[in-house]
Amino acid sequence: MSVLATAIGSMPGDETTGAGYREAVKVVLDQLPDLAAVPEQPGRGPAATMTGRTLAVVAGLDVDLQPAGWRLTGGSGSPGLDHRRTRSLLGQDLDALEELGQGYAGVVKLQVAGPWTLAATVEKPRGDLVLGDHGARRDLAEALAEGLRDHVRDVRRRMPAAASLVVQLDEPALASVLAAAVPTASGFGRHRAVHPPEASALLETVIGAVVAEGAEPWVHSCSAGTPLALLRGAGARGLLVDVDRLAAADHDVLAEALEAGDVVVLGLVPSTDPQGAVSDTALTQRIVRWLDMLGLDPTSGRLGVSPTCGLAGASYDWSRRALALSRTVADNLANLG
C-alpha cells in the first residue's frame, strides 16, 4: 500500500535570492520521488504567476500585460513582448526540468489555471473580464484545451522515464464564479452567476483534452465552497483540497471519490512558516481521525498528502521541510495500511 506525497505547485524565491528556479526543481525532485509537481515560482514576476504561466500554454490567442493585469489582444499569430516573455520563461523552466530530471521515474504533475479561474483573471481586448462574455470564455477554454495538448506532449518528450503525467487544473475562483462574487472592472458590481451545467461543460472541454493525451486530470482548489461533486462529474480523477476549508457535504464526496479509486490529496501541512513545531505524528493522526469519521482506512482508494496550498509565501527552508513532512506523513499512513 502506498500513499502519495506531492506539492500544490508554487515555490518561494526568485533568481536574485539564491533560491532560483533550478534550485526549486532540485528540491521537488529530491523530496517528491514518486509525484513531483513541476515548480512554479511566482516571485519572478507576472510571467511566472499562475495566470501568466497558463497564458504561455494557451494556443491561438495573444495577450499583453496591462496595469490591471493580463488582457487578450486577439489571435494575430504575432504575440507581443509580454506574451513572448511568458512563453520564453516556460520554455527555460522546462529545459531545467528536462536537464535535472534525467532518470526521474515518478509521476510528473503539471499545473495550470482552470478555465473558470482563467476567465476570472484575464480581460477582453476592450476591458472587463472574459468571465462576463459567454462566447469569450468558451473560446478561452477551447484555447486552453488545445494548448494543453501540446504542453503534455512536450513534457512527455522531455521526461521519457516518468511513469505518467498528471495535469492539475487550479480553480480557486470557481466558487466565486458560481456565487456571482467576482467583481466587475468598475468594482461597483458583480458578474452574473454561472450556472453549474455551463461550469461543468467548460471543465469537461479542458479535462477531455487532458485525457485524450493520456494524462490524468486533477483539480485543485483551496477555496471554501468549491463544488467537489461538480468537479468529479466533469471528469476530474483527482481532487486536491485544504482540509480546514471542507464543508460537511465535502467529506461524503471525497469518500465517494476514494471508494471509486480516484485520488484525494489532503492539504494539511502548513504552507507558510509555522509559529511552533509541526510533527508528522500529529499530522498523521489527524488524517487517521478523518478516515475513521468516514469509515475508511489508509488502504481506501488513492490517498495523498500535501501542503495546504502553494509554498510561494514560505521561506526556502520551510518549503523544503513542508515537502519532507508531506512525504513522511504519507509513509506513516502507508505503514498503517
Rank of each mutant, 00 (worst) to 15 (best):
V112P: 02
D154N: 15
G20V: 06
L283M: 10
L231W: 01
H151F: 06
Q275F: 11
L131K: 05
S76T: 15
G187M: 09
A68D: 12
A161S: 15
L169Y: 04
E198A: 15
A105Q: 09
A56H: 09
G9R: 02
L100F: 05
A47W: 01
S10F: 02
L4M: 10
A260Q: 13
S319K: 05
A312N: 05
C222Y: 13
V269N: 01
L258V: 04
I207S: 02
M1V: 13
T51N: 09
D95W: 11
A5D: 00
D82W: 06
L202C: 10
G267M: 08
D139C: 15
Q41F: 05
A314P: 02
G310L: 04
R156T: 12
A229R: 13
V269C: 02
D244E: 14
G114C: 07
R327V: 06
R321Y: 10
G106K: 03
R289W: 14
P115Y: 01
Y21I: 03
P115H: 05
V219Y: 05
R286H: 07
S88D: 09
H134M: 13
S221E: 03
V210R: 00
V166P: 04
V329L: 12
A224D: 11
P227C: 14
A173L: 08
A185T: 00
L266D: 00
D93N: 14
L110M: 06
A119T: 06
L165T: 13
D170W: 04
D273W: 03
G106P: 01
